[in-house]
Amino acid sequence: MRPALQPGDWLLVDPTTRRWPRRGTIVVVRQPASGRLVIKRVAARPGDTIRVPGGQHRLGSAEAWLLGDAPEISVDSRRYGAVNLDHLVGRAWLRYGPFGRPFGPVGQPSRRRSAR
């Protein structure tokens, strides 16, 4: 997730998130099948149509399409498909450490980006 996040960053995660946040937001989810805690970015939300090999796919009412920021090495929805809301752990909200890393919100899409 570089440069947005670096290994070792301390993040406050909002676990009260009950729906998929807007595109561009960084979320912590349980990876389908493995249950591993992983951190990804919301690329598409319920009702969005995405392009997949061989056509288009419309996401269900609880589904999101999650992608890592490093497409060459990230294991994300391209591998395990759309992720259901019950896998969502929370929204990554704030980086508060460690010392020397910038303090503040992470992964908030800018107004311009979310409008695209």
Partner: peptide, 24 residues
């Protein structure tokens, strides 16, 4: 610092630490 440090780790990509195997 110990009290403030996170106790849970989320991975950004699992390829390098856990191998690239996936039966999907």
């Amino acid at each position: 610092v110990q009290a403030l440090a996170p106790t849970t780790v989320a991975s950004a990509h699992c390829d390098i630490p856990c191998g690239i195997y996936d039966p999907h």
